[in-house]
Design a binder for these strands. Structure first.
Lengths: 365, 365
DNA sequence: CGAACCGACTGAACCGGTTTACGTGGTTCG
DNA sequence: CGAACCACGTAAACCGGTTCAGTCGGTTCG
């Protein structure tokens, strides 16, 4: 590369006729520099378009003002918002964010953690991947070295700071809402098998049933996954192989993508939402508002979760001592839209239907 | 932080009783090291869980094996796929990717370029933001310094490498398909005012009309934008203020989000897709396949674009000389789904409708 | 008038790696 | 038997910044 090399502090010092220590002082506004000297140095910096290398800058301190964020699926808009929140807060504090995605693959996660650490990030924010025999040694290693990290999903056995919402409570709210509408045959399309979020959401379903007098069907927890396709396939399979009374009248889903996939499957099977089946999603992606039948969903404060995680992580990083793990739970709300209504058998009370069709949106805390 | 400091090459050297040069030789497999020594060093590395800092590693070369990617909207799944492509190829070549988003804001773009360069990225991939009086000086500055960068959207006056599809051709194909179905009142919901992609797609619309005998309506180019909300608002406004014959029977959109927003607006106005209005999107987001009426759209090879951009950029970075700018155009296809059909007036030929409803998908090159 | 102090600036060490030039001691070969 | 060569290691310089201990000349004050 015949590249005119990027100017260094030495070039500036030479051109301004001062030592590099002085240039450094000007840049960082430390020490005392005569204003005439400062002007001269600044002029040279301007003219050379000099920018100090942040790498070299932090070579001594071993702190680089950067944090790593490991997500699970790059193409889920849910994560886009979390990332935006992390970036927003981090930028405000002068931190850079390095994002990596495990795509749900455990080995990719381990490797990504390695790479991020090689890149000298000062701390990590993680959506961990859990599989049947997850080896948590890389996380224990982080603990052992007192390397700061924040989880966005609980892991049993790992003492670490956490930002999350109370998934069980939110999930329970969703099911209870369906029960309050009069549904009695309700199922849950669950997320990835070993995901803690999925477990928590399932737990919420159990609790809702426990609190009601409605019998809990054996097949009420349907394994699906986290992606559009998962909801679609599980939907085809589940509803395709059942008819009439065997079919549930309402479904809560692990997330919005699964819900949308399910809706597609229902449509292909000739079932209408919400007339034949009520559907509730989770995450409250913006795109849901633009569907022909806007989806009822659990609103998760995605952006805020990102901000909070970054805030907590930077606290850990900048603290002199090792802070004890802290768990922060944000609130998830149920946003009621048009994909839910009372079940058919109760008889279509037009007023109730109108109520749901009329109001664009209603929020339950 | 009472952090047990991360081990350095010195710690390893000391523990293994060798010089750091030897440790370096072991790590990089350069020079000659007795196998017994190598073993010993490796054992210590293992035991200390030592990982060389990639920053320090490249301190000399001023090449850090990292590239910056500047996108425009973090929450558009389109970019998620491009990012994935960039990452995929970059990882394969041992490069890290730093992603920043301008969110369509010009000042944010300039700032992001600064930050990325401070972070010592070796090159940049950019979706530039264009506004009415865009000052391109930051791009000229890159050129002047022979700093490698790739554009993912053409900018007049900036000689740089480009990866894109032929937007005009793809857009033309979409309109021509509508014409072939018999539509005569077709409009285009255009993207951000100064975006080159939007201009190119508009150009394609003109060409399609120029090649047909259909009169081009004065209001055939409707300013919308790039987001769900833009399509929704423009749709409400445009279709809300016209009735009967004034209404177009088909619309092509700047992208899929706009198309989806438009669909929502049409639904609220009591117009059905495709019976009353045919709609074509652009980008072919996966989610479209899961809508009740899957959208006809222009398929853009998003992942591949990311890969190609990374490949070309790394070529530029690693080349000894400054390479001349190279423009690569990938192919965009029209994917025909259910949101398009012949206009009503021609009489509903059930066979044709069936044809469209039956086939899940058809691709036109 | 000399000591103390201060503002302005500099040289050198340092961070954690890589690279290069050089120093060993042991073989091989003419 | 001495020169040439090789395998194995090391010391030191370097990258581009920051930091700290000093240097130096000029005021201030007792």
């Amino acid at each position: 590369m015949t590249e005119k090399k990027r100017p260094t502090i030495n070039d500036v010092a030479r051109a301004a006729g001062v030592s590099k220590a002085t240039v450094s002082a000007v840049i960082n506004d430390t020490g005392s520099v005569k204003s005439s000297t400062r002007e001269r140095v600044l002029a040279v910096i301007e003219q050379l378009n000099y920018r100090p290398s942040s790498q070299a800058r932090h070579a001594n301190s071993r702190r680089h003002r950067s944090i790593g964020l490991l997500i699970r699926e790059a193409d889920n808009p849910f994560f886009a918002e979390v990332i935006a929140g992390v970036r927003s807060y981090a930028a405000q504090r002068g931190y850079t964010v390095l994002v990596a995605s495990s795509e749900g693959d455990y080995d990719a996660e381990r490797q990504a953690v390695e790479v991020l650490r090689e890149r000298d990030v000062d701390g990590l924010i993680l959506y961990p991947v859990l599989t049947k025999e997850t080896d948590l040694s890389h996380l224990f290693e982080l603990k052992r070295r007192n390397f700061p990290f924040i989880l966005l999903e609980e892991i049993w056995g790992v003492q670490a700071s956490l930002i999350d919402i109370d998934n069980a409570a939110a999930s329970r709210k969703a099911v209870e809402y369906l029960i309050s509408l009069g549904h009695t045959r309700i199922v849950h399309f669950a997320g990835p098998q070993y995901s803690m979020h999925s477990k928590e959401r399932i737990e919420g379903v159990y609790r809702a049933f426990g609190g009601s007098r409605i019998a809990f069907a054996e097949d009420a927890i349907v394994p699906a996954g986290a992606r559009l396709e998962d909801g679609y396939r599980a939907g085809l399979e589940y509803f395709g192989s059942r008819s009439g009374d065997e079919r549930p009248t309402a479904v809560t889903c692990y997330n919005d993508l699964v819900a949308l996939g399910l809706c597609r499957a229902l449509a292909e099977l000739g079932l209408r939402v919400p007339e034949d089946v009520s559907v509730i999603g989770y995450d409250d992606l913006e795109i849901l508002n633009y569907l022909p039948v806007p989806l009822t969903s659990v609103r998760v404060p995605k952006f805020e979760m990102g901000e909070q995680a970054a805030k907590l992580l930077i606290e850990h990083i900048e603290s002199r001592e090792v802070l004890r793990p802290q768990k922060i739970y944000l609130e998830g709300e149920l946003v009621i839209r048009r994909s839910t209504q009372p079940p058919r058998e109760r008889g279509l009370d037009p007023a109730v239907v109108m109520d749901h069709a009329g109001a664009a949106e209603r929020v339950m805390r």
